[in-house]
Simulated assay, not measured.
Amino acid sequence: MFSDADVAALYDLLNPWNPDRRSEDRFYFPLVMSSESVLDVGCGTGAMLKLARERGHRGRLVGLDPDRAALDRARRRTDVEWVEGTAADARRGADFELATMTGHAFQNLLTDDELRTSLTAIHGALRPGGRFAFETRHPQVRAWEEWTPANPNDVVDLVDGAGRAVRYWHDVDAVVGDVVAIRGTVAKPDGAVLRVLRESLRFLDVATLNAFLVEAGFEIQAQYGDWDRGQITDDSREIITIACRM
């Protein structure tokens, strides 16, 4: 068996939160540490908020995620508030200074209605002048074409928390419009499959993304094409956005 709890633990191994070593974490962490109240939408196992508390954040930290197994892992730290729910469940009038959506979680918002509902909720959870920081992969580089076991950089071998040697890789099942359906396979080193994880991701271009943000009442404060805050160019892999509640 490879349980939901095992999947949550594997996520932490594959995506260690470390602003001292990872450029994407280094981008977000100062924003979190300088904000007195933070809502992390799609917080997963809560690594970012837990580290913020460990490093001295004294304000309100709230993690929101629909994955119960991930939240069970997050709730091992009790001085952060953990809420089970989707982005659309963000509480109106909560008066947060900052909302974040890291790890490309924004791409899990697949339909126009889901985007509108989620952005409206996040907007409503922020105080006037509050900021929403998130990233989405730029569709122009077609990142999904690299998600294949034929790409050695997409195959990860590791030992999980239970001491099991496992291998993890992706396959793309379908590309329909701007939505890509993928499979993540957890297997033994000999290829025997332990668990298959399915996910769909939406790839929005800059103009489409910004139209949704403006419609929800946000003003685009800044957008970057890389984690060093470079401008968006024809070969940028990311659309990193800081939007402000009007």
Rank of each mutant, 00 (worst) to 15 (best):
D40R: 04
A94N: 05
A105F: 00
V80E: 11
F96S: 05
T136E: 01
Y11C: 07
G161W: 02
D157E: 15
M101W: 07
V159H: 01
L64S: 05
W17M: 11
Q140N: 09
H104T: 05
V7Y: 14
Q140M: 04
D113E: 15
V175W: 07
R91G: 05
G46Y: 09
R22W: 12
R58D: 10
A211T: 15
A187G: 01
A187F: 01
G93E: 07
P189W: 00
A143M: 09
F203R: 02
G217L: 05
V180W: 09
D113P: 02
K188P: 00
F203K: 06
P19H: 09
R53A: 08
D40C: 02
R245T: 10
R167C: 00
Q231P: 13
T100Y: 11
P30C: 08
L119F: 14
D89T: 05
T148D: 12
T185L: 01
I182F: 11
R73H: 11
A47R: 10
R60Y: 03
R183D: 08
R167L: 00
A192E: 11
C43G: 06
F218Q: 02
A216N: 10
E24N: 12
A222R: 14
A187W: 00
L51P: 10
L49W: 06
G63P: 10
F2S: 06
I239F: 13
N151F: 01
E199Q: 13
A133G: 04
H57C: 02
D173L: 14
S34Q: 15
V83N: 04
S37E: 04
D154W: 00
M246C: 12
W169H: 06
V214C: 06
L98R: 08
R127E: 11
D4I: 00
F27D: 02
A143K: 10
R198L: 11
R116K: 12
S23P: 11
R142G: 00
R60I: 07
R68E: 15
V186N: 02
P189L: 00
G93C: 09
L209V: 11
D79I: 11
F212Q: 10
G44W: 04
A133L: 01
R116E: 14
G129P: 07
Q231R: 14
V193K: 02
T100S: 13
M246G: 10
M48C: 12
R76Q: 15
A8C: 05
D67C: 09
D20Y: 08
R55W: 04
V193C: 03
D40M: 04
N153F: 03
E54W: 04
T86I: 03
V193Y: 00
V41T: 08
A150N: 01
V141S: 12
G42R: 01
L71W: 09
G42I: 02
L119Y: 04
E36Y: 07
G42C: 05
F2G: 04
Q107D: 09
